[in-house]
Simulated assay, not measured.
Amino acid sequence: MLRIKSKLTSWLTRLYLARASRRGFDLEKLPEAALVPLRRNGLDPVAELGEIRRREPVSKLPVPFGVTIWLVTGYAEARAVLSDAKAFSNDFGNLVGKAPGATAEQNPGGLGFADPPHHTRLRKMLQPEFTARRLKRLTPNIDAIIKRQLDEMDAAGKDGRPVDLVEHFALPIPSLVICDLLGVDYGRRDEFQRLAMQRFDLIGGTMGTLDAISESLEFLLGVVREQRKNPGDDLLGMIIREHGDDIDDRELAGLADGVLTGGFETTASMLALGTMGGVRDPQARENVSNGSADDTAGPPCVAG
């Protein structure tokens, strides 16, 4: 009986995920308790999440079809999980053949899906490229991108029309900066931006699932192969010149994918939420406008 139940649960899970990949995943259909980590009170997590942390810093989220998800909210517990790669692995290979829909071809690679010592080897290649001196070369392009997006917002807002800050500012800026960082050809930047946005869409159907990651990786593999032929002055070109024989195309595309996943959504969110914070707090907005680093005048800010 237990064996039949297990097979039925597995079949229902595959069926549900297949339908979700085609039609989109409706988060509202999950039990309310499973959505607590995603809920917000304004910009802050809901109070219930704090209560869960105090009551049970490691708790199981109620999700359907027998899928087990653990929510870790305690500080000490989170440190223990993040520091123990043997017990809590990031290696995507552990999902292949076990998680519905996970195949070896969908492995994003890169730092986010690797454990030591493989993670350590890749990190040593990438880390020197993120020094302040090397990143400073991006400043003129970043300034130009910001100015261009502000001009676009100004044009879109003529005649008093409302302008979507996320669409015209928060999303394009990190996407275009990452394009510069990776050396993506200018003519393909619209395609890159589309992939960047779709892979973070939790309700967008297939492009919000592992298939979106696969498409992004194929795109980045193409960028890597072009860089192999003619390395540029960008991140990928520098790694190829310095470590070309020690890293294959798939690994390098995985590193590029890690830059995308680590730098796109978080930056876009902070640009949008930071603007909202400034609108809600006039003193913080004034501090930023004046380039003030005096924390006694109001909430801390970053001097311009």
Rank of each mutant, 00 (worst) to 15 (best):
M1E: 07
K5R: 14
K7G: 10
L8W: 10
S10M: 01
T13W: 04
R14W: 13
Y16T: 08
E28H: 08
V36S: 07
R39M: 02
N41W: 00
G42W: 04
L43A: 09
D44M: 03
P45L: 12
I52H: 04
R54K: 13
R55S: 09
L61V: 06
P62C: 12
P64E: 14
E77P: 10
E77L: 06
A78V: 06
A78N: 08
R79E: 15
D84N: 15
A87Y: 10
N90S: 15
P100H: 04
E105T: 04
E105L: 15
N107W: 03
N107A: 10
G110W: 13
P116A: 09
H118E: 07
T120C: 10
L126Q: 14
Q127V: 13
E129N: 01
E129H: 03
T131W: 07
L138P: 00
P140G: 07
D143N: 14
A144S: 15
I145P: 10
L150Q: 10
L150V: 15
L165H: 09
P174C: 12
C179D: 04
D201P: 10
D201V: 09
G204K: 02
L210K: 06
D211N: 10
A212L: 00
I213V: 14
E218T: 02
L221D: 01
G222C: 06
G222P: 05
V224G: 00
E226W: 07
K229G: 05
N230Q: 13
G237W: 05
E242T: 05
H243R: 12
R250W: 08
L252C: 07
L255S: 09
V259A: 03
T261G: 11
E265P: 03
T266M: 02
M270A: 14
M276D: 00
P282D: 14
S289Y: 06
G291K: 08
A293H: 13
D295E: 12
D295F: 09
P299M: 12
